[in-house]
C-alpha cells in the first residue's frame, strides 16, 4: 500500500468520524428576572448571603453586567436577626475570605465594583453545630424563605495523597470516612492549595469544590468507605497548572487543605443537580433540567456546613 493510499484512508476515516460545528445565533426571548439566593453559614463563621437576579442567558456578560445582577437593597435576616449589607468596595479584610469563597471571585477582582452581600455580624449568628438557620429575604416586593440545618461535625477517618497509577508525580486526595448509621447524611468537599511547591505551582485564593463534591450516604449508609477526589479549581481557569495534563491533579510537593463538610440533604440535592448540569454543560445527551432549589419563592441555595480541615503535602 502506498503512502498516498494510507493518507487517503486516514483522511477518510477522520472525515467520517468528525462532526461539523459552527457558532449560531439563537433568538431566545428573555423572561422577567427572578431572584436568586446564594447563601451559606458554616460552623464558627457568620452567615453570608448574596441576592442576585437571573439574566438573559445569551446576554453579554462582562464584569459590570455581572455586578448589576447583585441586589443591594434587600432586607435579609437569619433566625429573625437582620444581616448587614457589605459591599466589595468597603469590605473589611477579615470578611474578604468569606466573600471570596462564597462568590468564587477574588476580592481584588471585585475591588472596583460595588458587589454587595449580606453578612450576619451578630455573634448569635455564628454557625453552631446542630442548629437550624432560617433565612428570610425581602427584595423587589417579593419574600423568599428557606431553612438550612447545620449538622454536627464529622471528621474523615483519614485523608491522604496517592499517585495516579500511570504517573510518577500527579495524584488524587483519598479519604476514608465512616458514615453514621442514620439515613440522609450528606457531605461536601472543597480543596485549596496553600503554598507554592518546588515547581512554583499556583496557590489558590480560596476553596474550590472538585467535581463530585456533593454526595450523600444513599449507597453506603453506616459503612466505612474509601473514595478519591480530584483537585478543585476555578471555572474556565487558564492558569498553567489548571490546564493540560496537570489539570485537576495534585502534584508532588503541593501543600493543600482538604475541607470536608457535613450538610443537609436539601443542600446536597441542590448541588447534586448543580453538578449534573455543570457536568453535562448543555450536552444533548443529558435531560435539560433546572436545579432543585431549597428557596421558597426564588432560585438558588441556602446552605449550612459543618466543616473540618486537613492539611496535606503531596508526597509519593
Amino acid at each position: 500500500m502506498t503512502l498516498n493510499t494510507k493518507t487517503h484512508l486516514l483522511l477518510f476515516s477522520v472525515f467520517v468520524l468528525a462532526a461539523c460545528e459552527k457558532v449560531i445565533d439563537l433568538d431566545v426571548p428573555v423572561p422577567e428576572p427572578r431572584l436568586v439566593i446564594e447563601g451559606r453559614v458554616e460552623n464558627g463563621q457568620p452567615p453570608v448571603v448574596f441576592v442576585t437576579t437571573t439574566r438573559g442567558f445569551f446576554e453579554p456578560t462582562d464584569l459590570n453586567a455581572f455586578a448589576e445582577t447583585f441586589v443591594d437593597d434587600a432586607e435579609v435576616s437569619v433566625n429573625g436577626i437582620a444581616l448587614q449589607r457589605i459591599c466589595s468596595d468597603e469590605i473589611p479584610p477579615a470578611l474578604a475570605p468569606l466573600f471570596e469563597e462564597a462568590t468564587g471571585i477574588s476580592a481584588e477582582a471585585t475591588a472596583g465594583l460595588s458587589i454587595c452581600g449580606y453578612v450576619g455580624t451578630d455573634p448569635a449568628l455564628i454557625g453552631e453545630e446542630n442548629t437550624t438557620y432560617r433565612l428570610e429575604v425581602n427584595a423587589r416586593g417579593q419574600t423568599l424563605t428557606s431553612a438550612a440545618h447545620l449538622p454536627g461535625v464529622l471528621a474523615p477517618d483519614s485523608v491522604w495523597f496517592r499517585l495516579w497509577a500511570n504517573s510518577p508525580r500527579l495524584g488524587y486526595a483519598f479519604m476514608k470516612l465512616t458514615d453514621p448509621d442514620t439515613t440522609g447524611n450528606a457531605y461536601r468537599v472543597f480543596t485549596r492549595r496553600i503554598g507554592p511547591n518546588e515547581n512554583n505551582n499556583d496557590t489558590d485564593p480560596t476553596f474550590y469544590p472538585p467535581p463530585g463534591s456533593a454526595f450523600a450516604d444513599d449507597f453506603f449508609n453506616g459503612e466505612t468507605i474509601e473514595v478519591f477526589f480530584v483537585r478543585g479549581q476555578p471555572p474556565n481557569s487558564s492558569r498553567p497548572g489548571d490546564t493540560g495534563e496537570t489539570a485537576r491533579f495534585f502534584e508532588i510537593g503541593d501543600r493543600f487543605v482538604f475541607k470536608f463538610c457535613s450538610t443537609s440533604y436539601p443542600v446536597y440535592d441542590f448541588f447534586r443537580t448543580y453538578e449534573a448540569q455543570q457536568g453535562s454543560a448543555g450536552s444533548p445527551f443529558a435531560a435539560p433540567n433546572n436545579l432543585n432549589t431549597n428557596i421558597e419563592g426564588g432560585l438558588g441555595v441556602w446552605a449550612a456546613y459543618a466543616c473540618t480541615f486537613d492539611t496535606l503535602t503531596a508526597t509519593p
Binding site: 423572561p31 446564594e38 441555595v301
Partner: peptide, 11 residues
C-alpha cells in the same frame, strides 16, 4: 433551551 442564567460559586 436555557432562557436565563445565574451564577452559583462563580459558575
Amino acid at each position: 433551551l436555557p432562557e436565563s442564567g445565574y451564577f452559583i460559586e462563580n459558575r
